[in-house]
Design a protein around this nucleic acid. Structure first.
Length: 541
RNA sequence: GCGCCCGUAGCUCAGCUGGAUAGAGCGCUUGCCUCCGGAGCAAGAGGUCACAGGUUCGAAUCCUGUCGGGCGUACCA
């Protein structure tokens, strides 16, 4: 049982006993551990209403606190009015035992019985997965892991469109290369795809289908899409990412969903014709400008299928719908939500995660990536060079709002010093200790005396392990996975320092048993945390 | 012009639902393996948290403005 909720409840009770107004009580470990294990500022927030000094309020609250004396060792009030709690070691010993008996320690239940949908990557099959897609892919998969950890049944979904203009140009590009190989004059599309993979696809078609294909043959586009999708899936697989569902935009034209919702909007007078195009009357719903739904060329804009698609996701009964978009979508998705609301759909369960683009640098120079101009670095090349764990950690260790710079040369040069190894090394070290212990005839068991763990380095590590459940619960709310990597890094620091200071396996059997228990628990936390990030926990490196 | 995001150590970035002395990695200086893995540990140098106001008992964190950068602002997706 975690102590935090108990303490918060006690504080709330004390507040109401004193007739003080309710407050959202925040309890967090102070920077300076001398103050205690947890501190709260409630008294400071009440100073205005109460009319007495925060110190007095704090003391009043403290006097009315009803807490277990076996778990709380000491409560102090310090200026300007913090209430500090020192938790008894007994509590931490209890946590240690919980971790060892439940290797899913900290697993949440808030998503139990609920379904979530996470849509990410969703790159149209016009070329290989590039480093530019990396942040999206890793973010989406990690968020999915976090939801699953809390009990959600997650559908990882990839949405694509194989009918648009870009796909047509792709087909034209392949066709041009096919005839080029044959020596027939055929003009390469002005804005065609220039990558070598186009030539490879053309060659494959030539090998399979011979030299007699006509210019109108659909094989060019079809083969290109097929080949590229296989390639993309393979690249994702290299990162440990698997999708449960691929949804084609075409579906919503074919099943009538799009016609249906357009009719509904028309019935609400939210659709009108102007200058040969069909418009969505967004201004009637508070927006600055109306939006084109169907171009004068009679092609719908992306908003139309996107709206049908999201309505479809809502209809599929998900309790939580998450979209992972790049910052170029910032202005686009509100229109979709707006239309959904106009259709009477509840969009409260939709969360849109916007990440900022990564600036790629090579030798200090900016690299502008374009799939069309074949000016890109593929995900596969990067993974081959530095490994999937390094790639995943790089993309997840920073907040999604960060405009981060990624120097390709440095990434390769410094991959051996990547901070991920610090975490994995801690895990490997522990495995080695345990293995070493086994050869000495020592095994992890429940017969250990936790009170022997009184070295400051041991206590500090134990306290860090205790924070895992609240940390991971917080991440479920914020959906900011970098918090996990920060936490794991801290945990690894405390472990490595402990390791340097305390020898685990010694002649002292009692102490050895206790320390084996501590490192075993640390290993479980590290492995679970790394698992959430989709990163391996090697037993040796 | 307008909207969203960012500006923290030489570099890459944590910290941001306000709290007590602003952190990490890399790079730099210097120590530490007879002993569970040195991919580690210990010590040091390095800061106007872009700038200016404001709110507050308290601001890197919230508000306003300025400067600088990214992305949008399409009958592209």
């Amino acid at each position: 049982m975690t102590i935090l909720p108990q303490l918060i409840q006690s504080l709330a009770d004390s507040l109401s006993a004193l007739g003080l107004p309710k407050r959202d009580i925040k309890l967090s470990p102070p920077n300076n551990p001398d103050f205690g294990d947890f501190a709260t500022n409630v008294a400071l927030t009440l100073t205005k209403d109460a009319g007495i000094t925060p110190i007095q309020i704090a003391n009043n609250i403290k006097d009315h606190l009803d807490v277990s004396e076996t778990l709380i060792e000491e409560i102090t009030v310090t200026p300007p009015g913090f209430i500090n709690f020192k938790i008894a070691p007994t509590y931490y010993y209890q946590i240690l035992s919980e971790i060892l008996t439940n290797n899913q320690f900290g697993r949440g239940l808030s998503g139990k019985g609920k379904k979530a949908n996470v849509e990410f990557v969703s790159a149209n099959p016009t070329g290989p997965l590039t480093v530019g897609h990396g942040r999206n892919a890793v973010l989406g998969d990690t968020v999915s892991n976090i939801l699953e950890w809390h009990g959600y049944d997650v559908t990882r979904e990839y949405y694509f469109n194989d009918a648009g203009r870009q796909m047509r140009i792709l087909g034209e590009s392949v066709k041009a290369r096919y005839f080029e190989i044959l020596g027939t004059h055929f003009e390469f599309p002005e804005d065609g795809y220039q990558g070598n993979y186009i030539k490879d696809i053309a060659q494959t078609i030539l090998d399979d289908k011979g030299r007699d294909l006509l210019t109108g043959d659909p094989i060019f586009k079809e083969q290109a899409e097929k080949t590229i999708f296989v390639d993309i899936k393979k690249s994702l697989n290299n990162l440990g990412i698997h999708f449960d569902q691929f949804t084609n935009e075409k579906t919503f034209y074919e099943n009538g969903d799009i016609d249906r919702f357009l009719e509904e909007l028309k019935a609400k007078d939210l659709i009108y014709e102007k200058e040969g195009a069909t418009w969505f009357r967004a201004t009637a719903l508070g927006k600055d400008q109306d939006r084109v739904y169907i171009k004068s060329s009679s092609e719908p804009t992306y908003r139309v299928p996107d709206t049908a698609y999201h309505r479809n996701k809502i209809a599929r009964g998900f309790d939580l719908i998450i979209d992972i978009f790049g910052s170029d979508h910032t202005d686009a998705y509100p229109d979709v939500l707006l239309a959904l609301n106009a259709l009477g759909e509840n969009t409260d369960n939709i969360r849109v995660l916007i990440y900022q683009f990564v600036t790629l640098l090579r030798g200090g120079e900016k690299v502008k990536m374009s799939t069309r101009k074949a000016n890109f670095v593929t995900m596969d090349d990067l993974v081959d060079e530095v490994g999937a764990d390094v790639v995943r950690y790089f993309f997840i260790m920073r907040g999604m709002n960060t405009h981060l710079n990624f120097d390709l040369d440095l990434a390769v040069d410094q991959s051996e010093k990547n901070p991920i190894y610090y975490l994995q090394y801690a895990h490997a070290r522990i495995c080695n200790i345990i293995k070493h212990g086994e050869t000495m005839g020592i095994s992890t068991n429940s017969n250990y005396n936790p009170t022997l763990l009184d070295n400051p380095a041991e206590v500090r590590l134990l306290k860090k392990l205790d924070q895992f459940p609240s940390m991971v619960e917080n991440v479920l709310q914020t959906l900011e996975p970098q918090t996990i990597s920060t936490y794991l890094h801290d945990t690894a620091i405390f472990f490595h320092k402990f390791y340097a200071e305390c020898r685990v396996i010694t002649d002292d059997v009692e102490l050895t048993n206790a320390r084996i228990a501590l490192v075993s628990a640390t290993r479980i936390i590290l492995a679970n945390g790394l698992g959430l990030l989709g990163i391996s926990s090697p037993e040796k490196m």
